Simulated scan of single mutants.
Amino acid sequence: MKPLRIALYQGPSGVPRTTEESLAALDDAARRAAATGAALLATAEMYLTGYALGDAVATLAEPADGPGAQRVAKIAAEHRVAIVYGYPERDGERVFNSAQFIGPDGVRLANYRKTHLFGEFEARHFTAGDELIVQATLDGLTVGLLICYDVEFPENVRAHALAGTDLIVVPTALMRPFEVVPQTLVPARAFESQLYLAYANRAGAEGEFHFAGLSCLAGPDGVAHARAGTGEDLVFADVDPVRLRASRRQNPYLRDRRPELYGPLA
């Protein structure tokens, strides 16, 4: 299997824009990603609408097959690049903080609802998802989805590793001063669970939130193979299945686990 090139789009930066502006920026990022040979473009948490929405979350939320999803599908198919993006999802009276995975043909591959909500804003406006392992296949790789705070729980990443996930894509809205997460924790998660982690953050200030940027692709060697700055950025790196298999053979963490001792963790 050949490496899968992934693009991380850290933008648009600054105050929340309209969904139309977000889609126009996504179309441009997808065009640039496809021009480099990228097969997958990952964007931030709540990409379509912006994160700092307050009570407008309920108004802007749309179904998983809503107009925003249809536009993203059209962009993916036009540029022949898969896209993972964050958005507020409405399902009846409930609103979820969700991430959707659209294939390069414009077909939806997966939809994930954030399971670990962060802070008062999210707890007030969203319902927590209850399905941890959401996966799809892209170019022979098993791709899983988490959102921001989810990746800070080692149990979540380990569960994906045990379920056969090769790459976890993590749309993110990480604020300052928590730069330790992309700088230290994300590479450590990739190393300890022997997989790739694509962490696509927001950048700039939105209302009371100041996002840290520093999007990265971390590998099973515990190294960030691509790293964005603190402003709008588009960075590229490869997910190499050959190196992943070799690393898994050499690293004993998953083999040396003793699940019979872990009962208290539940």
Rank of each mutant, 00 (worst) to 15 (best):
E206D: 10
V169F: 05
E192M: 10
L197I: 12
G231L: 06
F209M: 07
A188K: 07
H210N: 12
S193E: 05
P182R: 04
D221K: 00
P182K: 04
A226D: 13
R202W: 03
E206A: 04
E179P: 12
H225C: 00
E232Y: 06
V235W: 10
A188M: 12
L185V: 08
V186C: 11
V180W: 13
L174S: 13
R189Y: 04
R227I: 09
R176M: 15
R189K: 09
R227Q: 14
S193Q: 03
F211C: 02
L214P: 01
N201F: 02
D233Y: 09
V186M: 10
A237E: 03
E179F: 09
P187N: 07
R227M: 13
Q183W: 09
L214I: 10
N201R: 02
L217V: 13
A228R: 00
L234E: 14
A188Q: 08
H210P: 00
E179N: 10
D233N: 11
V235G: 07
P177F: 13
V223S: 08
V186Q: 03
D221A: 06
A212W: 05
P182E: 04
D221S: 09
F209W: 13
A190V: 04
E208H: 06
D233L: 08
P220R: 05
L185A: 09
V181K: 02
R176L: 12
E232H: 10
N201P: 07
R176A: 10
A218M: 11
G222T: 06
F178A: 13
R202T: 01
P187K: 06
